[in-house]
């Protein structure tokens, strides 16, 4: 498949996060560019896989600006300026974040929560109302409009959390374990959501973690494996990127899951077991 890489959308340099004396992640470097394909709007889908406790959540918290990096920096494209090459350091709220538990405001109904997410947008009340109702319909949440989080199913909560972030943040969205604890139907819903997001704007970028390697390989066009790196034959106590697979360069991104994909799954599993 033909594609070109253009402006840098995500630039992570030398990132490390430590809690007190304990380094959780270190030496993380990532460059992700805008993928452009003729005849279609192509967002970016980036998967992060790794065993539990290797620091995926911590990495995501740093990526979204929720925790300050101990060293290094995270830059994203500044889409508010005219110049296309402007970058800015990430700040909380710039990147949407849906956590593993699909946390919502416990005292807001789905409708109220979405209204809150739109609070800073310069739109009339009617426009906001219309936008919310459209999304509720498209995402199958019409019936849940006036329900509180404690009255929603896991899948409904997750969809609400995703719409909130679409409304509020720019082109980036980080999802921590979006496929865990969902049934077959919900998993399909999330896949469709990914598609909706990436097809709606060229810059839209989804970054997600998963324990399901097949789902990483099937959906992502770029995969990072986080594990404990080995330096001079010694295993380090912190997480870092131990392998990067560029599905685009391999020519198997945006394709039906096939034998080539299976091979990648096998490779990733081997790396994960070793690190």
């Amino acid at each position: 498949m033909q594609y070109t890489s253009q402006n840098t959308l995500l630039y992570v340099e030398n990132l490390s996060v430590a809690y007190g004396d304990k380094t959780i992640i270190k030496d993380i470097n990532i460059v992700e560019k805008d993928t452009v394909r003729d005849g279609s709007v192509t967002g970016q889908v980036i998967a992060v896989v790794g065993r539990s406790g290797t620091g995926k959540s911590t990495f995501f918290r740093a990526l979204t600006g929720l925790v300050k990096p101990t060293t290094g920096k995270v830059l994203i494209a500044d889409t508010t300026t005219d110049s296309i090459d402007d970058a800015k350091e990430v700040h909380e709220g710039d990147i949407g974040f849906v956590d593993q538990k699909y946390t919502l405001f416990r005292n807001k109904t789905v409708y109220e929560a979405l209204q809150f997410a739109l609070r800073n947008k310069e739109m009339s009340k009617e426009e906001k109302d219309k936008q919310i109702l459209t999304y509720l319909k498209d995402w199958g949440l019409e019936k849940a409009k006036d329900q509180y989080p404690c009255e929603l199913s896991g899948g409904q909560r997750q969809r609400t959390a995703i719409i909130e972030q679409i409304f509020c943040s720019g082109h980036y969205m980080v999802l921590d374990e979006p496929f865990s604890g969902l049934d077959v139907g919900n998993i399909q819903d999330v896949k469709n959501a990914f598609k909706l997001i990436t097809e709606s704007h060229e810059f839209n970028t989804i970054i997600y973690s998963t324990h399901d390697i097949e789902l990483a390989v099937e959906l992502a066009d770029s995969i990072y494996v986080i594990g404990y790196p080995e330096i001079d034959g010694k295993k380090m106590p912190y997480g870092s990127i131990v392998k990067h697979i560029d599905m685009k360069a391999l020519g198997i991104a945006w394709k039906e899951f096939g034998l080539e994909h299976l091979d990648i799954v096998k490779q990733i599993k081997e790396v994960m077991l070793q690190s």
């Binding site: 979204t64 929720l66 709220g93 405001f105 005292n107 809150f116 972030q165 943040s169």
Partner: peptide, 29 residues
């Protein structure tokens, strides 16, 4: 839980808004 603060922050709330939304309004009951 930390997630509730993070959730509010990820929606662009500043710290005072987080206090208001999550702690004050979110916990009246």
């Amino acid at each position: 839980p930390q997630e509730e603060f993070d959730h509010a922050r990820s929606l662009g709330c500043n710290r005072w808004e987080v206090l208001w939304e999550v702690v004050v309004k979110g916990r009246i009951d």
